[in-house]
Design a binder for these strands. Structure first.
Lengths: 65, 65
DNA sequence: AAATAATGTAAATAACACTTTACATTAAAA
DNA sequence: TTTTAATGTAAAGTGTTATTTACATTATTT
């Protein structure tokens, strides 16, 4: 699953550390999500969504396969 | 996190078994999600979302706390 | 160029999502 | 009312999400 986290962070001028604190996860978790190492849990996705004031679908791109 | 799975299933006349097969998880997983035992993973939430043709936000209700 | 901030990555561990098997309860149909 | 379908639940196991600590690399500032 792809995501626009890095771009959204850049647009709003946040570091991975900043975002991690706001969302309530570790910096490594944000990094791993950005790098596509794993997908966030649904609760984490919701927090990211609310933080950027964007629907989950506008941040995460699910493609079947 | 609350969800409208049971209602959506009823509206479309699907059993937990039906939904489980369509989504690609076990019936117990659907049951557990409905019963609030745990939240689905983001990929599973996306599959449910696409199946019902509704945004994730219209199916799952995240409340902070 | 040297110091500092930001990011990438890894190992060990904990917590959670999900599976299978199995059985009990509830609802619906014959 | 007896059978069958649907749902609820539990235990044991697997894989994934997230944590902490720690260090290396890449940018940015000074």
């Amino acid at each position: 699953m792809k995501n626009r986290l890095k771009v959204l962070r850049a647009e709003n001028d946040y570091t991975q550390e900043d975002l991690a604190e706001f969302i309530g996860v570790s910096r490594q978790t944000i990094n791993a999500i950005e790098k596509g190492k794993f997908d966030p849990s649904l609760p984490t996705a919701f927090r990211i969504s609310k933080f950027f004031k964007l629907p989950i679908e506008d941040i995460f791109d699910y493609e079947e396969g």
